[in-house]
Simulated assay, not measured.
Amino acid sequence: MFDVGQGAAGDGRRACQGIAGAAVSHRLLFKADAERMRQGAKPWTFVATGTPIREELPVRTDAVWVEACLKAWLPGLRGTGLAVPDRRLRAGPGERTVIELPEGSWWDWDVVAWDPGQLRLGAGHDLSYAHGLELVFSDPAFVTCPAAFQDPVFREPTPDEVRFVARQVGETPPVLVAFEADAGGRHLASGLVAAGRLDIVRGTVFRYWRAELAGGESLAPWVRPPA
């Protein structure tokens, strides 16, 4: 069993626990495949077999995001009479399409880290030495974003943008964030990020080496101790 953590993934964990408690004979698997993630394939897989799983329910579901797996099999499982959690999935389409930033001076932005599992955008009033806010996108599937930009205006994605991203990645993303910002050109630059989850994290992230860190402080991923 793969521990999928919090948010909508936590719904999957609790649902699996509910199925396990009710099933007489069962096999459950909920996992993320790192190799498929690196290859750009659908990394999330859910498999459920045995009583009371009915034959008409999907035995296996593969998807780009964990939320897509949940949406494929949760309704049918509830139809069997199982007490599966009915909490709304986190950051579903139309729920958190417009970011509400906490109070602060978040004028300067850049890409802190980006790999197949996570995109981190850092913000602050001046990024020379530290930043105090991060937008952490888990399982990014489609990203259009300047490497550095200022004063972004986040907005609701247009229907055309939603359809465009869905065609690109094969399904509607759980999280789709759109914005315009000053990237140094004559015109505003557009940003569009599709991901499985979004977390807004506050805390001081230093961009230079510090041997001692207080609570809520950390180092940027490229910072290393002096030789």
Rank of each mutant, 00 (worst) to 15 (best):
V162K: 12
G7L: 04
D62F: 01
F46D: 00
C145T: 03
L82R: 09
R167G: 04
A195P: 02
K31F: 04
A195Q: 08
R36S: 00
A15P: 04
S190V: 10
T49D: 05
G104C: 11
L119A: 03
R207V: 02
P75S: 07
L121C: 02
A148E: 15
L135F: 08
R155N: 05
V66Y: 01
V84W: 07
D126Y: 02
D160E: 15
R88P: 08
A148N: 11
G104A: 08
R54N: 03
R87S: 00
A48E: 06
D110W: 05
G184F: 04
P146C: 10
G196K: 13
D108E: 10
D11C: 02
R90F: 06
G40K: 04
G79F: 02
V177P: 10
S128V: 12
A166E: 14
Q168S: 14
M37Y: 01
E35I: 00
E35C: 00
D110T: 06
L176D: 05
F164K: 11
G184T: 05
V165Y: 08
W107I: 14
V98L: 11
R210Y: 01
A83G: 06
G18T: 04
A148D: 11
P85T: 01
F142S: 09
A72E: 13
A214S: 15
L82N: 09
T158W: 08
P159M: 13
A20H: 12
D62P: 04
V143M: 06
T204Y: 10
E56F: 15
L188A: 15
E212K: 10
V177T: 15
T144Q: 15
L213S: 02
D182W: 10
P226W: 02
L192N: 13
P173Q: 01
P221Q: 04
A123Q: 10
R87D: 08
W109P: 01
P93C: 00
T45W: 00
Q118L: 12
Q168T: 10
V59E: 15
G170R: 03
V201A: 13
L70R: 05
T45K: 02
F154V: 13
G10V: 09
F206N: 07
I53G: 02
Y129F: 11
I200G: 04
P152A: 07
V223H: 06
V24T: 10
E161F: 06
W107H: 13
E180C: 13
H26A: 09
V4A: 10
A20E: 14
L57N: 03
D126N: 12
G81M: 11
L213K: 05
V223E: 05
L57T: 00
A9C: 11
E100I: 13
D126L: 08
P159K: 08
A195L: 04
S25E: 14
A220P: 07
E95W: 13
